[in-house]
């Protein structure tokens, strides 16, 4: 297992470098450059040239790449062209915010998805199963930005029970911790729901299908023949097996969650990496874009690694295969 993890981490390092290299050149290939915001008659071309030189933007792209990579490998993400602040301090603010949002969405989606999927499988072809099938299809196919706007319209504007933007209310700092905590949760509800609900719908379908497959297996009949209750048959014997493919699905869903966070953060003015990424791309703030890209890539890789480890832990056939022999 340790060897497996080590191998995967080594592969991941190479993968990260490739992703960053591609991003770097793609960005420089795309039209526009960080200096376009100095397109101002009041700033002399000479000043712009000086700034350009100072930032190293006058050098040929390959040289810029080598320089950037050299400092990146030393752990230095550089300075944001837009904010004139170290990229690392921007990330330090944005990463926890994005994590808070995606972890909330992930939890929501796994819990809702697994429970609905299990219930559907247990009551196959019941009214509940049919309704949840239709609901899942509906939720899965509506665009998340539209759903976000509709929910904001409903809960923020019409009923005024949930906030529609930012992570906390103004002037919240004067309140007690409980009030602050519930204020934060209230801000989290809509974005996390919108981000997680489509995946939850997908998860419910996978879970249902996986359970129904497993319930047809011979060993389920054996479990019943032992005299076990339906509850044990479902939750112990069937669920443990049905959960194995689901772990992979969760790992594969991470890029979609993080990608979805970009749009959701913009809509809900959530100060996370998604919003930072979008704004930095428009401003051609190269160091920030690269750094965010790096962080997201690492998150996806770690998530997938965790999913693979979880898979191996759940499925003894794989775990012992790695112990070589036996």
């Amino acid at each position: 297992m340790t060897r497996f993890v080590a191998e995967r981490l080594l592969q991941s390092v190479i993968l990260v470098l490739i992703v960053l290299t591609i991003t770097f050149f793609l960005m420089h290939l795309s039209p526009g450059d960080p200096m376009s915001r100095y397109d101002d008659p009041n700033i002399s071309p000479e000043t712009v040239r000086l700034i350009r030189e100072q930032l190293g933007l006058d050098k040929p792209v390959p040289e810029q790449y080598m320089r950037w990579m050299a400092s990146f490998l030393r752990g230095d993400f550089g300075v944001s062209l837009r904010f004139n602040r170290p990229v690392s301090s921007l990330l330090a603010e944005a990463i926890p915010n994005t994590l808070r949002l995606t972890i909330a969405a992930l939890t929501l989606y796994i819990v809702i998805g697994v429970i609905l999927g299990l219930l559907s499988a247990v009551r196959r072809y019941s009214l509940f199963d049919r309704l949840s099938t239709i609901a899942a299809l509906f939720v899965y196919s509506i665009p998340s930005f539209w759903l976000a706007l509709m929910l904001i319209l409903l809960f923020s504007l019409k009923f005024e029970i949930l906030p529609s933007s930012h992570m906390q209310s103004m002037g919240v700092s004067g309140m007690g911790w409980l009030a602050r905590f519930s204020d934060r949760i209230a801000h989290l509800v809509l974005p996390a729901f919108v981000l997680g609900v489509a995946s939850a719908a997908g998860m419910a379908r996978y879970m249902r299908g996986s359970m129904l497959d497993v319930l047809r297996e011979d060993y389920i009949r054996t479990a019943r023949a032992k005299g076990l209750s339906e509850r044990s048959v479902f939750l112990k014997h069937a669920f443990r097996n049905a959960a194995i493919p689901i772990v992979t699905i969760i790992g594969l869903s991470l890029p979609f969650l993080l990608g979805g966070a970009v749009i959701i953060e913009k809509i809900f003015s959530w100060p996370g990496m998604g919003a930072l990424m979008v704004d930095s791309i428009f401003a051609r703030d190269y160091p920030v874009v690269l750094a965010v890209n790096f962080v997201v890539t690492v998150m996806v890789i770690l998530g997938n690694l965790a999913a693979d480890i979880g898979y191996a832990l759940l499925d003894p056939r794989i775990a012992s295969g790695r112990k070589a022999g036996k």
Binding site: D218, Y219, R221, T222, A225, R240, R317
Partner: peptide, 12 residues
């Protein structure tokens, strides 16, 4: 049962 190969639960 008739099928010893598939009648045991693989994860226990």
């Amino acid at each position: 049962f008739q099928e010893p190969l598939s009648s045991l639960n693989p994860v226990f």
